[in-house]
Amino acid sequence: MNTAFISNVVFPFVKGGAEKRIHEIGRRLAAEGHEITVYGRQFWDGPQVIDYEGVTLYGVASAAELYADDRRSITEAIDFSTRLLPHLRRNIDDHDLVVASLFPYFPVLASKLVTLGTETPLVTTWHEVWLDHWDEYLGHLAPFGKAIERLTANTPHYPIAVSGVTADRLTEIGPARDRIEVVPNGLDVTQIETTEPAAEGFDVLYAGRLAEHKNVDLLLEAFDQIADTRPDATLGVIGDGPERDALEARAQTLEHADRITMLGFLEEYDDVLAHMRAADVFASPSTREGFGITFAEAMAADCTVIAADHPESAASEVIANAGFLTPPAVDDLASVLERALAGDRPATDPTARARRYDWDSVAEQAEACYRRAIDGTW
């Protein structure tokens, strides 16, 4: 099977969830003898085409800034998609399959243009479906974002969603539910289980983007509320984002500010894992999660996971009864934090639940979907 992955950002030069997924699935397929090529921006030095862990990385455009004013750049996405066209068109007959990463949409549309009139199927991977979130993200330009998302959803292709929640949201603007396959995101369970815990860890940990829908402010308030009854408890917050300054300022106003540490963004993934391994509780009251990989990572690290119960979050699907769900409100979150810090554990062992998301399993599921697309049996 000769597969082309399309992603303007390429792991390990840019370290995000979508590009990490492509890398982990791609290198496992390559190890089985499949030919894997990732078409992306050339964030590396040297030749345009290089080999990385058995996967061919093909630079179709030079590195570029991905964000403008804290939002993904539309001009960057269009530029990449335009530059992708001649390279993918030149090699399309060599590929049995094209797998395009969704956001920022335009590369999917460009990939479809290239595959038109060929026997090469197009598969997409949906990490999130934004729907009304476009209003918050783009303001008066939201109708443009919604239109592109809907156009992409209705472009003929084979869709994979990373969770049932994401699949259900996709049906609101595009394909029928029985046309959507669900293949979760993954993690290296062995890597997490063998990581040495941080020497100076925290009792409660958050790791993720500091954005409004993550509701880290609720976690700060809830921790401060229970800190009197847990006099030795500490909270660590890992991450960066548009809410960082406001959250740091809010933390300083709390009664127990001395027990809250804002660590910012940690460059090394192993450092994040080390803090997870050292923590007793991992809490993330986010109300919008297309999957929520940090929940799975924290379960693999044997944390008691606390997540928000919300219809736009896949947290309940990811953790099931191997963690605790709570309404995204300060008092409710504080109550569950108190129980977890007192030693209350979920019904199912978190580490056992985490193993279903190991990359080996995810790669097998993805390969089965890719073969069905090629065989026409999807």
Rank of each mutant, 00 (worst) to 15 (best):
V14Y: 05
S62A: 13
F106M: 15
V98K: 03
G59L: 03
L84E: 04
H34P: 02
L122N: 01
R27C: 08
A64E: 10
Y137W: 09
R89W: 10
T125F: 10
E65D: 13
R41Y: 01
K15D: 04
T125S: 13
L29C: 03
I36L: 05
S73W: 00
V10W: 03
V99A: 14
S73E: 04
T56V: 14
E128L: 05
A77F: 00
E128S: 09
T82P: 06
T75E: 10
T120D: 05
I25E: 05
V108L: 02
V108C: 03
L29P: 02
E35L: 13
R27D: 02
I92L: 11
S7H: 15
R21N: 13
D69W: 00
I36G: 01
Y52R: 07
L88Y: 03
S73D: 12
W44P: 04
D70K: 11
G16H: 04
R41G: 15
A110I: 07
V98N: 01
T37W: 11
R27E: 11
K112M: 09
D70C: 07
L113H: 11
G59W: 00
F11N: 08
G26M: 02
E19I: 07
W134A: 01
A30I: 06
H23L: 04
Y137G: 02
E65G: 14
V49C: 12
D70H: 12
V38A: 03
Q42E: 12
V38E: 00
E76Q: 14
L113W: 11
P104F: 01
T75W: 08
V108G: 00
Y137N: 05
A77D: 04
E32R: 15
R71T: 08
V9A: 10
F13K: 08
S62T: 10
F13W: 15
K15H: 05
V55S: 00
V99W: 03
S7D: 15
G59A: 09
F80M: 09
P104V: 05
N8Q: 15
W126M: 06
R27K: 15
A18H: 02
Y39W: 10
V108P: 00
I92A: 06
L66I: 12
P104L: 05
P121Y: 00
L85Q: 09
E76C: 02
S81K: 05
V49A: 12
D69M: 04
A30T: 07
Q42D: 05
D132P: 00
G40M: 05
F103G: 02
E119G: 11
V55G: 01
V14F: 02
K20C: 14
L57V: 04
V55P: 02
V10S: 05
H23S: 13
V129P: 02
H34R: 09
N91M: 09
G117C: 02
S7Q: 10
G17L: 05
L84S: 06
L109R: 11
D132R: 08
E19A: 11
I50L: 12
E35R: 15
F43W: 14
T115R: 08
Y39A: 07
D94W: 06
D51F: 07
N91L: 12
G33C: 07
V98T: 03
W44F: 12
T124K: 05
W134S: 00
V49S: 14
G54P: 11
D79R: 12
H87V: 12
Y67M: 13
F103A: 11
Y39K: 09
T37S: 14
D132K: 08
A61R: 07
I92T: 06
V129H: 01
G59K: 02
G16S: 01
F103Y: 13
W44C: 04
T120Y: 04
D45P: 12
